[in-house]
Design a protein around this nucleic acid. Structure first.
Lengths: 185, 185
DNA sequence: AATAAAGTGTAACTTAAACAACACTTTTAC
DNA sequence: GTAAAAGTGTTGTTTAAGTTACACTTTATT
């Protein structure tokens, strides 16, 4: 239990992230300056740097937050099986990717992708360690990576499909195949 | 040219008024507490009182601002005739009333009406004095009042009509009648 | 290639907003 | 009727945000 953060800090962060998301709809990431963000957020440019290192740091935090918003609560549940976790993460990811405005530029896509990858690997890693505490971490890390690529690949596949199936319907028949691999553990 | 206001002040006002308008969509005015507003606005309750006397004062300012937003620029134009002013005010009023969510309660309706009345009287009064500077103010005040009732009456009439005519079409045939009265000056 | 213009990141100082505590007035509930 | 709860409006004190200025880097312009 730590001393709760000043409401002004929370408000400022909210204003900044909302402003950023707002501008992000209309401009590509590289075109956005810190000044743009702070003007939209109605805060001073110097204040921005009290909260974020730079706009890349902001992007990172925003994506993290967005992802957590979808699967944050589920993440805690230790009751969840790996299979459920995979499905949940997949659904969160597709939800996230459809919620993000089809952003253009390469730079920001790479940035976002990198952040998502880190996040997913972390989720899978945690879950795998939780369920197989005796297995060595090196192996679990590799598996987490593999699961991440798998889930993101399927997500991309679904995204490029005609989407007559829901995301859930799309991954459902694939889950047994994925699970077979995991069950080698 | 006066010393420009602190950006924090502008931001806080914006947050408060936006929060108020937001809550006003879901609750009636009497049900809204200052705490509700400040929570939604993410500001401290004490700060509210640095900007507004109470929630009635806030309502007043918000309605004023909304009205000004519509006819603020026109109000300056000394070039405008009384007839144009009447029409402009009428159109602003109908625009305002259709933009306000059909708010329920009696208390707030009266509050808003009172504010609108004050505002319109003030506009007409200014215009009349500008055009007839030699006429005594007492009389112009009465005329301003009369114009206000006229415009608001027609606005109400239009609102209750089936609105197959636009507001502009609605008042157009009435303007000569109104002007006849004014031209007695 | 040179220069202007726009953007970045930082730091000392000022100020508006948060805190929290208060007396007071409704509302609500027993 | 009265006690608890919720709301109002105010006042010092503390703190996050605004100001301004700076050195520096990147991007346009000539």
């Amino acid at each position: 239990m730590q001393t709760k953060t000043d409401p002004r800090v929370l408000r400022t962060r909210k204003l900044i992230t909302e402003a950023f998301i707002q501008i992000f709809q209309t401009k590509s990431f590289s075109e956005i300056s810190v000044k743009d963000i702070t003007t939209e957020a109605m805060i001073n440019r110097a204040t921005f740097y009290n909260h974020f290192l730079d706009k890349y740091d902001l992007l990172e935090k925003v994506v993290e937050e967005k992802l957590h918003l979808n699967l944050g609560c589920e993440k805690q549940k230790t009751s969840m099986s790996i299979e459920e976790t995979i499905e949940t993460v997949f659904l969160s990811l597709t939800r996230f990717e459809t919620s993000v405005p089809s952003v253009s530029g390469q730079e920001e896509k790479e940035a976002i992708d990198a952040i998502i990858k880190l996040e997913l690997v972390n989720i899978f890693r945690t879950k795998l360690i939780e369920i197989n505490p005796q297995t060595e971490t090196r192996l679990l890390d590799k598996l987490a990576n593999w699961l991440t690529f798998t889930v993101r690949g399927i997500s991309l596949d679904w995204k490029h499909s005609d989407q007559d199936e829901t995301a859930g319907e799309f991954i459902e028949p694939l889950l047994p195949f994925i699970m077979r691999g995991i069950e080698t553990l």
